[in-house]
Design a binder for these strands. Structure first.
Lengths: 205, 205
DNA sequence: ATGTGCATGTAACTTGTTACATGATTCA
DNA sequence: TGAATCATGTAACAAGTTACATGCACAT
């Protein structure tokens, strides 16, 4: 069996939902897949060709009246078994590349006013996205109801990733706000008093 | 003024703390910097040469009795002003590449037993790292006391990144545990009842 | 002698981004 | 006519990883 790349896994995973053209796949990768993986069309088209050369996908040319013709890709039986195996395989270790956190490690050499602006800005952005995700969550819950909790339906998987998005934005907004608070509190003065951000106490061991 | 790459920023940031050889820089990048940025020695040595060609660092050959000679790099005045400006500049947007979350979006096509093993495994790993970070936090607090909250000292910056590490591991462990719980609850049955993971309610707008 | 840690580099390869290139159709 | 969306590709470049390569010093 051929070893899948992550991008190959993404594309096969999307094609498991329904047949799509490269263009449509690229759009899904812009949203919502971009929250956990990204790829431009210049990477997608060659990867589709590669998957096809391994017989994991096949395509059919589809003419359209109102638009240019497109190649609609479908996953093959071989593709299905490959992606199912891949989904439960150990993920490659994530390589953290977080420039804000990196810059936070250099806070000490910085002008406090500029840093404060930076962290307050990030805090606001994370709060905005959090509110948006929470609205989406309520929508999905209203839309699907108990059907949301069907392990074998894509809705559930989407819900699971949405929950992680909420947790992520929540945690990051809190941290950014705490950093900004510390900068405000400490700049100018040498006064120390309290401890850390309100890290979720409910699950804290 | 020359435009810094992120790697250039990392190296200058470390050299702001003290002069170091490429080898020492590589070790710092393994730990603790690897929590937010990574680089191998094969990338570090050429980057140091590049920084030197822009006069942002300089080096001095240092002979040692017990070990091979080394090149100790120091940051120049130009380097200092470049990195100080860089630290408060807008970070490049982070490109999320989270293979576990990607695979979570494909949970629906998967064998529940295998998935359960995966998420329980991750939960345990995150809890272990969380415990470790919390121990480090207590150590730092005991070690530096009120001195920890000096905006202009590296200890404070390190503490800030440590707090983010704690928040991250906390959030991720909670999410992984929740996913695993859902898989346990839903596999075999079609029974639905509750909602999401205990997302930190204290700050939740 | 053999392995490990210190120390510095280059080369080949992979992945991903930006830019180049083309062409149809629709809407203002 | 010109911009926007749909649609598919290639080429050049940048960043990062793996592998190749060398050599000293110390401990077993």
């Amino acid at each position: 069996m051929v070893q899948l790349t992550t991008l190959g896994g993404v594309l096969l995973g999307l094609l498991m939902r329904k047949p799509m053209s490269g263009y449509e796949l690229a759009q899904h990768l812009k949203y919502p897949v971009s929250n956990y993986w990204q790829a431009k069309h210049s990477q997608i088209y060659p990867e589709l060709a590669r998957l096809r050369s391994h017989a994991l996908v096949s395509y059919e040319r589809v003419e359209q009246r109102d638009r240019p013709a497109k190649k609609v890709y479908s996953i093959t039986e071989q593709g299905k078994s490959a992606v199912k195996e891949w989904v439960n395989s150990e993920p490659a270790p994530i390589v953290p590349r977080d420039e804000l956190l990196l810059k936070a490690s250099m806070l000490w050499m910085t002008d406090p006013a500029g840093a404060l602006r930076l962290y307050r800005g990030y805090e606001a952005r994370h709060r905005a996205r959090l509110a948006q995700y929470e609205a989406t969550k309520r929508e999905r819950e209203a839309e699907h109801g108990d059907d949301l909790f069907r392990l074998d339906a894509p809705h559930f998987s989407d819900y699971v990733t949405l929950m992680r998005g909420i947790g992520y934005e929540q945690e990051r907004a809190t941290w950014c706000g705490w950093v900004a608070d510390q900068i405000e509190r400490l700049s100018g003065t040498i006064a120390p008093d309290i401890a850390g951000p309100e890290v979720d106490a409910s699950t804290g061991e």
